[in-house]
Structures are given as structure tokens and as C-alpha cells.
Design a binder for these strands. Structure first.
Lengths: 374, 374
DNA sequence: CATTTTTTGCGACACGTGTCTGTTATTTGG
DNA sequence: CCAAATAACAGACACGTGTCGCAAAAAATG
């Protein structure tokens, strides 16, 4: 009511702006009118709220002159209707939740960025949530409460408790997609074919004559990394080699607080342990970099004495010396495929479950791998 | 109305869940009840909506038995009131916009992560927006339309056109804070004292006997980097040295698509140019790393022939070899100070303008700097 | 049982939007 | 100038919430 009275004759907030003007005259502040609701807009152009709404929503049967008049004011003021009232009325929220495992790994963050950009391009706002400090159930319920139309999981989600939340989402009609492996049969997954990628890596090393391969960050204890192990085993078995003796692990690996530290410490463990391998596969390029630095400190040359393969094809793999042989993460392709998968469900209004798609891997051979030296 | 009828006797969506149950009996799906509104909750517990609302909002004068009954159902179902209707009613949105310059620099992303965590800890949702592909005015209006209570700018925002948006925010009563330098007198800034940081760096190099310092990524053309230049000049002038001759720039620096490439190319430019400096200060650790690799390729040892100082104290500065002397970015301290600054305004209901606070820098001396070799 | 106190119910309102229905105003055509 | 067509309006509704005033029921007290 009070607002209505204020509007009769004066644009709202005028008095405030005037006093501001008197306070310091340096900046003229051209008394820019602010329109907050369609009712204000209607009053300002001298039309009814219904007509303005019809114009805003592109209905027919309206005089061109009025359309232009309204649209000009819209352009000037940057007015757009309050999204919350529309969401409340049951319209789509134009929001998609992005459930990020962590901000720590920058390959993951790059994928996040790519996903966000692609969503923005088709008019969706990304609601970014991270699992670092909160409970899965809380976040999932928050996502549903915020009326997100879908969920994209970015990064490695290892907690199997998340499976229940995914089913809850599906039951509520909210489609989802993971961009990394996830150990639940009902989950939708669009991700790089790490099995094939590590098959490529293993074959590359075997071709170079390596017969003992050390694993850094790859273990059968973590379900999401099993795919990599399968690839390694497959390549070995194809050459009648025994994976159990060809693949070498470290008993109690250090905690992975920092990739580079982890790589360096793994290098030390391997070097001081029995059955030192001649080649190593790592879970990402930073670990590979740390390992190479670790080996160098120990007097072991790369690729002279040992070979190291990274993962992701980040900048550091390109520009470290030696540059690092690695498997490309195909970030853009994965993000594009995941977003497309989700959008197609939204378009059709169908919630898909238990579908997975693998994108082919690509080995990038650089300086960190060379012939086995025995 | 139809929903109301459905509710009289059956929890909503029961039929759907039952058919689902018959479809595959493997998972029992314990017919979990879903509560979507306070009205449904009230009907389910046999109370009036007003009473339930009073319970949910912690009013007094309610029987303990009913409180417990309602809260138990809330815990079971994870119900929470629709945030949109409350926002629409004018209640606070509990949302703070985070305006990110880019996802590319990971020191910036780390600060983003820290800010998001701190906001989450005090009950705020972060609305992350990036300026990479959109118009400042559009984003600012979107932020205001989303009823964000404040805006935190993370990363280097160089576009001076943003100043108008900041004033628009202030005029609308939305507080803001930058976490890096920004070239507008009305902006609030909480950031690292880069002037003091580069004073430390310059003094360190001067102590080592260096008299010609090359600049990588630091230029007086970019306003936000002027602070660094001032620090360098101040240190030089304190020792009666002429900044104009002591500081060496490259005429037409390459585009900064990748930090490491940029560093490597800058190394080549300097090495092939006149007046080759004996020491370099860079704008971040990755550029320093790239430069060191570039110098190594050219047969110049670090720190034997040239010294290099990075910025941020990222992992790569710690674990590269040589490890890199750098200035710590004080990410946590900056994020904490910025969030505190914004929250205090929200708490007091005051919008502050043109306040800036500088956090002290810290030089971390490592292997990439050594005595000048002439 | 009567009276007081405590607890709950009922209905309404506001927030901003898009849409619907019936009615009135304006323009167009002859 | 009149009839027909077109355009605009006014008012209502639903979405879900918190709150308010008032009435009614339930409980506690004498």
C-alpha cells in the first residue's frame, strides 16, 4: 500500500537518491529509474499489468507501439521478472545442481568450469555444491528443495553412501549424471574410458621393454580406480604376462594431502623397497611430476633409469622437463557429453537410470618414458 | 484441490512408488513418505498449518508432545520449508553472490573454495557467477534479481566498466568486497599488500647483489598490477637506485593463454633481448616455473645464472626443482577477512563504501634465488 | 463443576508472477 | 456515423510461507 502511494507520481527510491545527490555533487547519478515488479513497469508505461505480462511473454494481439514502449523501458532498466515467484508457481527453476567432489584437483575444477559454461550457454544457472564439509543427504535434500532440474556430479565421488541419494533423486524425478566412475549400478555415468587409457599406457611401456610397473595412487581398494587396474591387467594378460607379479604396489601409501608430496614420497618408498619397477603409472600429472622430482633427488634419471606416465594432460605435463607422457582427460568432451545427456532428459521429460557411456582415451607420448634399462 | 483430496488418506505419489515396487522387487523401497509443504506436514501429523509453522519457527506456548511429533517427522522426511516463498515474502535469501574472474588460475579457485566454505559455515549459499562469457551489467542485474545479500569479487577484475556495476550495487543497498585490487575509488577491497610483497622481493634480490630485474606479467598498463610496480620502485628508491633503468620489461609480451607457456616465452624474449637482467619477478608461480624451464632450455641455470621469484606459494613452488622463492598469497587470511567484512555489514545492515584493507605479505625464500653472477 | 489458563484452529494477508474470464475502450472498415 | 474487429483492463486465482487476530477447544486449577 505504502509503496503504491509512493509510486503515484514518484519513481520509488527517488528521495533517497536525491539526498544522496546533495551529499556529494561530484557524480550526477542521472536519476536512473528502477523497476522492481511488472506492476511498477505497467504503471510506468501506463498500461495494465496483464498487458505488460503479455508483452513480456511474447503473446500476440498487441499494438506494436506498446510493445516497443515496454521493451525500451525493459532495456533501459534491465528489468526482468522475479524468478522466485515463477519458481513458486511451479515453472521450471532453470537451475541445475553441480555436485563437486572437491576444489582441490584442478582438472576437476576445469571440468566444473566447462560444465558451468555449457549450462549458462543454454540458459541454466549452476547451483554448485561441494561435499567437502557436509552430509550427502543434506545436500541432496537442499538440491531438491531448491527445485534443481537435474544434478551433475563432477569429480571422483567415492562415498558409497551417495548411492542412496542418487536413487532418491531418481525417485523424485530429478535426472542426474556422473562425470567420473561411480560404484552404483543405478547411476548414469559419462566418463573417460580409463580402462582403455591404461591399456594404452601399459602397452606403451611394454613396447619399451618394461616388465615391472609401479602403481602410484592406483589401488583396488578404491572402487573408482578399479577401471584403471582392469586396463593394466588386460594389457598384461594379452601378452601372457602375470599381472600379480608385473604390477607393484606400495604397502601403506602416504595420505594424499598434496599430489606433488604424494608423488615424491611414493618415489622414495619404491626406491627403498624391494622389486623396484622400471616404469610407473600415476593417477594424475602432479603425482607424476612429484615422483619425477623425487627420483631425480634420489639420483635416478627420468627416462634414463625409470619411466613415468601421468594422467590428465595438464599444463605441467606439457612444460615440465622432462615433459610427461600422459593420458588426456578429454575434459571438454566429457563435460559436453554429460551436459547433453542431462539436457536431453530434461527436454524429453524422461528420467534415465543406469546408463553409462565411455569416451575413448588418448595417449600423449612425451619425454618421461623411454626404453627399459636393465 | 486435487492434491488435497489425494492427501486425505494417502501420502502423495504412493501409487507411483507402488508400481515401481512391482516393477522390480529387488529393492524394497520402504514407502518413504514425502512431505512437500507445511500444509502436508500439518495434515500428516493432524495439526493445523499455523501450529506447525509455529513449531517450525520455534515459538513458545506449544505442547511438548506436539513439538516432538512434528520434529520427528521433519527428521524422517528431511522436510524444510520452500525457500522461494520466503524469499518472495521479503525474507533474506541467505545467498551471497561470488563473482569469479575466471576458473583458470588455481590460486583464484582456491580462494573461491575457501570463500564458499566460509559462507556455507555461517548458513549462506554461494551463487557463483563468472565474467568469462557474459556482460557485467547482465550479471549484476541477475545478482540483484536473485536477491543476493552481498557480492564477493574473487580474482583479478580488470575491466573498468565494472565500476559502474559496483556503484549500482551500492545504490541498491547490496554490500560488496573485492579480494584483489580494483581500480575504482568507491570499491571495498580486502587484499594482500602486494606493494609490500614486492618490496620484500626486491630487497631480497638487491641484498643478493642483483641490479637489473626483469618483469614477467607485471606492467603499468594493467591498473591492478600497479601495486606491485610501486613496491618494486619503492625498494629501489630506498637504495638510491633508478627504477627506470633497474626494471626491465619486454616490449610486446605474448598473450597469457597458459601461464607456463607465457613464462617460457618470456624467458626466451629476455634472453634474446638487450640488457638481460640477472633476476626476475613474476606474477605467479606457474609463470616462474615456465620461465625457469625456459632458461634451463637456453642453458641458463637457476639460480646459478639467473634468479626467479614467483607469487602465491602454490604447490609447484614448493616441489619444483629448484624450488621457487615466492610470496605467499595468504589465501585463507584474505578469504576470511573478506567474508568477515561482508558479514559485518549484513549484520549491522550498513553498506560500506570505499574502504580498503591490506594484509601483510610474506616472502618464502627457496632455491630459485641466489647471489648475482656478474 | 466452574473458572481460569494454556493450546490449537480458522481464516486472512502479502510477496510477484502468468493466465484466465468477462467487460470496456479504442481503432478500423464501410 | 455505425458496426465490427481489435486491444486493453480489471479482477481473480494459484504457488508456499510466516504471522496476525480472534474464536474454540483442551487442559489445568480451584
Amino acid at each position: 500500500m505504502g509503496v503504491g502511494v509512493c509510486l503515484t507520481g514518484f519513481p520509488p527510491g527517488l528521495n533517497r537518491r536525491v539526498s544522496h545527490f546533495f551529499l556529494k555533487k561530484i557524480i550526477p547519478e542521472p536519476a536512473r529509474l528502477t523497476i522492481r515488479t511488472t506492476a511498477e513497469l505497467a504503471k510506468h508505461v501506463g498500461l495494465s499489468r496483464a498487458t505488460v505480462s503479455r508483452i513480456l511473454n511474447g503473446h500476440s494481439g498487441i499494438k506494436q507501439k506498446n510493445i516497443e514502449r515496454v521493451m525500451r523501458v525493459v532495456d533501459e532498466t534491465g528489468f526482468s521478472p522475479n524468478p522466485y515467484s515463477n519458481i513458486l508457481r511451479g515453472k521450471r527453476s532453470a537451475t541445475i545442481a553441480v555436485y563437486l567432489s572437491s576444489f582441490k584437483q584442478h582438472a576437476v575444477v576445469q571440468k566444473l568450469a566447462d560444465v558451468v559454461h555449457r549450462l549458462a550457454k543454454v540458459g541454466y544457472t549452476a547451483l554448485i555444491e561441494t561435499a567437502e564439509n557436509a552430509d550427502h543427504a543434506d545436500i541432496t535434500r537442499w538440491i531438491m528443495r531448491m527445485r534443481a532440474e537435474g544434478v551433475i556430479f563432477v569429480g571422483q565421488h567415492t562415498d558409497s553412501g551417495l548411492a542412496a541419494q542418487v536413487r532418491e533423486l531418481a525417485a523424485a524425478g530429478v535426472p542426474h549424471v556422473f562425470t567420473e566412475n561411480f560404484s552404483d549400478a543405478k547411476a548414469n555415468i559419462v566418463t573417460l574410458d580409463r580402462t582403455q587409457g591404461l591399456e594404452l599406457a601399459a602397452n606403451h611401456l611394454l613396447d619399451l621393454g618394461h616388465r615391472r610397473i609401479g602403481l602410484m595412487g592406483i589401488s583396488d581398494k578404491v572402487p573408482v580406480e578399479v577401471a584403471r587396474l582392469i586396463g593394466l591387467r588386460r594389457a598384461l594378460e594379452a601378452r601372457k604376462l602375470d599381472p600379480a607379479s608385473a604390477l607393484v604396489s606400495v604397502g601403506d601409501p602416504p595420505a594424499r594431502v598434496s599430489n606433488m608430496i604424494f608423488g615424491r614420497e611414493m618415489a622414495q618408498r619404491f626406491a627403498s623397497g624391494p622389486r623396484m619397477p622400471t616404469a610407473f603409472v600415476t593417477v594424475n600429472d602432479e603425482i607424476a611430476f612429484g615422483a619425477i622430482e623425487g627420483f631425480r633427488t634420489l639420483g635416478l634419471a627420468v627416462p634414463g633409469n625409470v619411466s613415468v606416465i601421468g594422467f590428465n594432460n595438464e599444463d605441467i605435463a606439457k612444460f615440465a622437463s622432462p615433459s610427461i607422457t600422459t593420458i588426456d582427460a578429454e575434459i571438454e568432451a566429457t563435460a559436453a557429453a554429460a551436459v547433453d545427456f542431462l539436457l536431453s532428459q530434461l527436454l524429453k521429460g524422461v528420467v534415465i537410470s543406469a546408463r553409462s557411456r565411455l569416451l575413448p582415451s588418448r595417449l600423449v607420448v612425451r619425454e618421461s618414458t623411454g626404453p627399459a634399462n636393465r
